[in-house]
Design a protein around this nucleic acid. Sequence first.
DNA 1: CTGAAAGCGCTTACAG
DNA 2: CTGAAAGCGCTTACAG
Lengths: 338, 338
Amino acid sequence: MASITEIAKRANVSTMTVSNVINKKYQKVSSSTRERVEKVIEEMNYVPNLSARSLKSNNSKIIVFAIPQTIVDDPNKDSAFTNPFYGELINSIEFHLREKGYYLMFRFVNDDERLSSMVKTWSVDGVIVLGALEKELSTIFADIHVPLILIDTYIDSPEYDCITTEDEAGGRMATEYLLDHGYRKLGMVASSIGETGVAQKRYQGYRDALASRGMRFEESMLFEGFPSYEFGIEVASRIAKRKDEFDAMFVYSDLVAIGLINGLKNQGIRVPQDIAVIGFDGLFIGELCEPRLTTIKQDIGAKGQKAVELLVRKLNRDSEGVENIVLPVTIVERDSVV
Amino acid sequence: MASITEIAKRANVSTMTVSNVINKKYQKVSSSTRERVEKVIEEMNYVPNLSARSLKSNNSKIIVFAIPQTIVDDPNKDSAFTNPFYGELINSIEFHLREKGYYLMFRFVNDDERLSSMVKTWSVDGVIVLGALEKELSTIFADIHVPLILIDTYIDSPEYDCITTEDEAGGRMATEYLLDHGYRKLGMVASSIGETGVAQKRYQGYRDALASRGMRFEESMLFEGFPSYEFGIEVASRIAKRKDEFDAMFVYSDLVAIGLINGLKNQGIRVPQDIAVIGFDGLFIGELCEPRLTTIKQDIGAKGQKAVELLVRKLNRDSEGVENIVLPVTIVERDSVV
DNA sequence: CTGAAAGCGCTTACAG
DNA sequence: CTGAAAGCGCTTACAG
């Protein structure tokens, strides 16, 4: 395991010079020395030891991407990724981090775990968090003294950098799309509305659209539950008993929407003829079901990319103050609304 | 940032004693000292610096999970996780690593990248690789001197620890299931058969089953291509022109199988009445399409778990020689075969 | 432009 | 059971 000392010896220079070459501080090294050192580095197949560097300079090239267990499935099952959203996001984050020379540490975090110890443990350079709750920021994510980028997190405090989607506008768009297509009895399916998050925002958009078109809203039009495929099925069986109350449903998540579609079909309810369904996310699985899911699409790849770019800007001190990036949504017209 | 030195000072002991307490070498510390030190550690909110530890002892608690770019989608698109298989697997690996006190570094690796430098860079403790090709083991994965666990990799050399699925038996099972249900004109869809991997094994099982039942096989019954949803669609359009040559298809991957089903439907071919389809993997997305996909199910969660367990056994030197774990498959009877 | 040396926070023989 | 000290591989003022 070649070290900087060994390189220095062979090249007949000091370790400092080697270090300067490695770190491309070329003003400090004459070009002839530089070439000599680079040759030895090449020959010896030298790879810098980042543990040593991080010990000394208190930074690594590690970025943690953390998903709170609270927003995923049963933490004892290993099935959180049933929603392809997660896979697509981590994929994008890894891709863009790698491009910028960083390493990705991925982790689910529990209530009882404080991410700050992980950050200290590894001198982690920065953290990206998906869908944290406000209260978690003062527990799980407290005491982190490196750049922290929040994805899909809504909090009042202006001290965090956030990447979100036009959730509220998307909710409005979905609702107006249904109204414009002649539907008048619009229910909504969401996860817990009480907690500040994407579900709440999308719900807000739904409420807004209804109100601005002079439509009534009643509590009974809202179905809340844990956002899984099974929950969609369950909602379908509840709707089956109240058929004539609805002619369309806005579901805040594609996965749940597909569950709803399949559940409705099982109940003998035709989609979209009896009840239309519109989703939110734009996952590719919306292509798979029948009828194919009409949905509000967000760009998950862009979400990961923007998060990484913002983080890197923070790390390079190219960004002042707090940034708030909101990504646009588009509508994907398929067959579950007609 | 509390260090071991500071703890030592406050507890009036040497750093060695603190180190021994932290590392639970309790035979070396009297219980009274131990308690005192533990109290100070608690008070000061001490977190060990693993960079320092890894610098000294040449191990970290980091495990790399690497996926070669060769087996995923276009490396320039960030869409490799379209197949939910990846998400489920990484999910399981993270879960079980965390349980054992390890940190997960996740990375796609390119042809031109040698994973060994990453291992050296971080004093990585072990590596888990998904679906490597034989040639990659001598390039991308060469020169790794820590435990290396291969998932879904078939190589002749007996020097690697592997976790695989009963791919060949599964291929046989799928084929026999179709035969037992009266189908006689069985095509197969796979990725490249030429490369040693799961596709080849599943194909082998298909060939075996045909042979042992006295059925003929011809090259034209096999469709090879890049394993995506779109490939399934494409195969469907090719099959449409040769309708009467097939009454059932065995598709080596659920994602492709669903593409095939939807493609066939678009071509006006009924599934399963005109052509039955059986998949392989047992992904939840097989529930979403219509008809629901009959498939050979592997246990992806178990795959991740076994990989982690085997790796940890290697790290603890609880495993001698090379281990080869083959996980069973089961058939999930749904509606795409009748 | 270059070097000698201290020090980052740990672990670990060695000596008592 | 406990301590003093060396050293892991780097970076970085400081001095020349």
